[in-house]
C-alpha cells in the first residue's frame, strides 16, 4: 500500500503572534517552523504501521509552499517518510492547496491519503475534505484510529459522545485527529543524515484559483485583570457564580 501524507508548515505553537503592514500580513520574523501537529499525528501513525510490518510500500509527504518550507519537509523525511514532493507555490487558500495536491495524487496510485483535521495557523479544517472531493474519493473525518490488515483498512471515527468503526473502499482520504498515534517522533542523527539523500521533488503548480482572501487581522481585545479571591473567603466566589456567571 502507498500512503500520501499532506503536510503543512506552521509556526511553532508557542509563537507570539504579530502582524505587519497595517495588520494585513503575518509577521514571520524570528518564527520557528514545525510540522502541523495533526499532520504529525498522521505521519507518526503511518510510521507505526510500517514498523509493525504492515504492507506499506511507501510513505510520501507532500507540501504546498515556497523553498522556505523545505527544512520542515526534511524533518518529516528524517522521522521516516520515504520521499517528498513540494509544490512550488505560496499556499493561497485551502481550495488552491487542495487543487495542487489533487493534481499530484491523480498521477500516482496512493491507497490512503492522510491529512490532519486542522492546521494550527489558519484553522481551516478544509484541505482534506476538499482534496477528497477533487479526487472523488470517499473520505472519513475525525479519524482517531487507523489499522491495516492485508488489503483491509480499519478505521475508528470520533463522533459526539462516542466512536464508530468504519469500513471503506480504497483509495480514500483519512482526515485525522488526536488519538490516532502515540508520541510524535524526534528525528535521530541517523535519520537526519538519511533524509539528506531521500528524494524531495519540486513540482510546478497547476493553474488554480484561490476563492478566499485573508485581508486583515486583529488581536483579541485585552483581557481585564483577574480578580483574586481569598481561599478563606469562598462566599465571594459563590457570589460571583450567583451574580456574574448566573448559574446558581
Amino acid at each position: 500500500m502507498k500512503i500520501l501524507l499532506c503536510l503543512s508548515n506552521v509556526p511553532d505553537t508557542t509563537t507570539k503572534i504579530r502582524f505587519t503592514e497595517d495588520n494585513t500580513q503575518f509577521d514571520t520574523t524570528g518564527i520557528q517552523w514545525i510540522i502541523n501537529p495533526w499532520d504529525e499525528f498522521a505521519l507518526t501513525r503511518a510510521l507505526e504501521l510500517k514498523e509493525k510490518g504492515t504492507n506499506i510500500e511507501k510513505i510520501t509527504v507532500i507540501n504546498v509552499g515556497g523553498k522556505a518550507t523545505e527544512p520542515t519537509i526534511r524533518k518529516a523525511l528524517a522521522i521516516g517518510a520515504d520521499d517528498a514532493v513540494r509544490v512550488d507555490a505560496e499556499p493561497a487558500d485551502a481550495y488552491f492547496v487542495a487543487a495542487q495536491i489533487a493534481d499530484f495524487a491523480k498521477t500516482e496510485d496512493y491507497d490512503i491519503i492522510l491529512c490532519g483535521i486542522d492546521s494550527s495557523d489558519y484553522n481551516g479544517s478544509l484541505v482534506g475534505g476538499m482534496l477528497a472531493e477533487f479526487l472523488d474519493y470517499p473520505s472519513v473525518s475525525s479519524v482517531s484510529g487507523l489499522d491495516i490488515e492485508g488489503s483491509e483498512v480499519k478505521i475508528k471515527r470520533e463522533i459526539d459522545g462516542g466512536q464508530e468503526h468504519i469500513h471503506t473502499e480504497l483509495p480514500f482520504v483519512a482526515i485525522v485527529q488526536k488519538g490516532i498515534s502515540l508520541e510524535p517522533r524526534i528525528p535521530s542523527m541517523r535519520g537526519i543524515m538519511m533524509a539528506r539523500k531521500k528524494p524531495l521533488n519540486v513540482k510546478t503548480p497547476v493553474e488554480a484559483e484561490a476563492l478566499t482572501e485573508f485581508v486583515s487581522y486583529e488581536l483579541p481585545p485585552a483581557k481585564s485583570a483577574c480578580k483574586m479571591i481569598d481561599a478563606e473567603n469562598l462566599q465571594e466566589l459563590v457570589g460571583v457564580l450567583q451574580n456574574e456567571v448566573k448559574i446558581l
Binding site: 503572534i17 494550527s120 484553522n123 485581508v215 486583529e218 483579541p220
Partner: peptide, 15 residues
Amino acid sequence: KGVFTGKAIANVVIK
C-alpha cells in the same frame, strides 16, 4: 474567524 488557535482574529473575504 479565529486564527492561530484563538490567538488572533482574521477578516476573510469570500470571492
